[in-house]
Design a protein around this nucleic acid. Structure first.
Length: 196
DNA sequence: AAGCTGGCCTACT
DNA sequence: CAGTAGGCCAGCT
């Protein structure tokens, strides 16, 4: 027990549901104990790619259809529709909360994620603005927090852009970020967002 | 535990 | 406009 965590020494099982929309595969990971969402995977163009990503992150998982409905709702967000999720459906425990090893890295990230969750569809905020609402100048750290967001789409980190309104980066690629924002009605010219 | 590394920012060409 | 050097700061090894 005092031994260091090797990769499989904490075999927390996780339930995975996968759904397809057009030629894209989406997945969600849910903890069987808490029934909370532990991870959302951005769509992949092939089932194999998604499987690979999942097994790379979770050594112990089990496929189930039980959460297909949840995946469907994630797909809706991807398509630009309203986000039906509440924050309490997500497992927001941090890696360092007690002895638990939660999906969120640290408290800084958690705070940023909370703020980003509130950005309405069709709007954007800059990394700097997010930092400032945390009374911090750590814009870069906000970027890192978004990069580690375990719940993309539901926590809409695609709505966070650079201060010059350039799209910035995205885990699923800038292309996807642009498409997502477009579908939500955000005006974009080239690599830049137009804000009213 | 002292660097290193970013989904960044600003000021300059 | 576009590109970039240097600056920032929290997390991560």
């Amino acid at each position: 027990m005092g031994k260091k965590n090797i990769i499989n020494s904490n075999p927390k099982k996780i339930m995975i549901s996968i759904c397809r929309a057009d030629d894209l595969f989406f997945a969600v990971g849910v903890s069987p104990e808490t029934e909370k969402i532990v991870r959302i995977f951005l769509p992949q163009s092939g089932r194999e790619l998604l499987d690979e990503q999942i097994s790379h992150e979770f050594t112990h998982f089990e496929l189930t259809e039980k959460y297909n409905e949840v995946v469907r709702n994630i797909i809706k967000i991807y398509q630009g529709q309203k986000n039906e999720f509440e924050m309490d459906m997500l497992d927001l425990s941090t890696k360092k909360s007690g002895k638990q090893t939660g999906p969120v890295s640290n408290d800084f990230d958690l705070k940023a994620l909370h703020l980003v969750f509130k950005i309405p569809r069709g709007e954007v905020k800059t990394y700097k603005e997010v930092a400032e609402s945390m009374e911090s100048r750590a814009w870069r750290a906000v970027g890192s927090a978004m990069a580690r967001n375990p719940f993309p789409l539901v926590i809409p980190c695609h709505r966070v852009v650079r201060s010059d309104l350039n799209l910035g980066n995205y885990g699923g690629g800038v292309e996807m970020k642009r498409e997502l924002l477009k579908k939500e009605g955000v005006k974009i010219k080239g690599q830049r967002v137009i804000r009213p």
